[in-house]
């Protein structure tokens, strides 16, 4: 038998496409999938949220409250609730019975929990200087109820994690990347919600006091501790400086008058805690 050596040209066993081209195609596909999931989730949650009865919300709210130890201070609670009631008096809020809870945590924040429960952190009461300022923060939380944001956020968060786990498994670099980019979408959505809630709060403030003085005070005060703007790119809330600007623009556009600030009555300060901390 004769053996003749032959050389082969090219390499048939390796596909000729350039890896970067291949990569960009797949990246594009991945982005399309993410966008699709996100759209489906958005539409889905919006549909579902409209259907959730307030009763179910109240049940959820009780669960949520259990996570934050509330401080029993009936008097302060009542005052906060009265303020809430006054604020909500002439609004188109769904039929919630608003309840205020006081948490001893030092955070400067308030939280809208399902079922019309508003959790006020002690740190917030320490910081605010006028009743108008406090009313603005509470009005903002009422804005979340008006849009039922607390439910939407819950639904989307749940949907996102389920979708990511189903598609990409639990631990892989890809799953990490995808849930990260989904969260980025999520944060831009949530920043819009916050802005809408600010606008709603402003409206309530104007209705209650006849003017909107003190509306941006709280956010202006937070600017100092907020850090640089870039870090807020993926945050759930807009940068406070941004919010001050938006509020000022709104006030100018709607021609709300500016009046005198109501001092924060003593009864809104936090009760002295017995333990010195």
């Amino acid at each position: 038998m004769k053996f003749s050596a032959k050389e082969l040209e090219g390499n048939l066993n390796v596909s000729p496409t350039h890896p970067l081209l291949d990569f960009s195609w797949m990246l594009g596909g991945l982005i399309a999938i993410i966008a699709l999931i996100y759209l489906l989730l958005a539409v889905g949650t919006d549909l579902v949220v409209e259907q959730i009865p307030i009763k179910a919300e109240v049940w959820l709210g009780e669960r949520g409250l259990a996570e934050f130890p509330a401080e029993a201070d009936a008097e302060l609670q009542q005052r906060l609730e009265r303020l809430l009631e006054e604020l909500a008096a002439d609004s188109d809020l769904p039929e919630y019975k608003f309840r205020a809870y006081l948490s001893s945590r030092e955070e400067v924040n308030a939280l809208a929990l399902p079922g019309g429960n508003i959790l006020v952190f002690a740190g917030l009461l320490d910081v605010v200087e006028s009743e108008n300022e406090l009313a603005m923060v509470l009005g903002h939380e009422l804005g979340h109820f008006a849009q039922r944001d607390h439910l939407r956020g819950l639904g989307r968060g749940l949907g996102l994690s389920v979708a990511a786990a189903l598609l990409f498994g639990e631990d892989s670099a890809i799953s990490n990347l995808v849930s990260r980019s989904l969260l980025t979408f999520q944060s831009s959505y949530s920043q819009q919600q916050e802005e809408a809630a600010d606008a709603y709060g402003l409206q309530l403030l104007a209705a209650r006091y006849g003017h909107v003085a003190g509306a941006e005070d709280f956010f202006a005060r937070s600017v100092a501790t907020a850090g640089s703007r870039a870090t807020y790119l993926f945050a759930s809330h807009p940068h406070p400086a941004e919010r001050v600007i938006r509020l000022k623009q709104l006030i100018a556009a709607k021609k709300y008058p500016l009046g005198k600030l109501e001092p924060l009555a003593d009864h809104f300060t936090r009760p002295a805690t017995p333990s010195a901390d």
Partner: peptide, 21 residues
């Protein structure tokens, strides 16, 4: 990079060029 490509290919199917070579 090849590993990332392979993981992505797991989603879409098709020739896994990274492993072919």
């Amino acid at each position: 990079f090849k590993r990332l490509m392979a993981v992505l290919r797991n989603l879409f199917g098709g020739r896994v060029k990274a492993y072919e070579s």
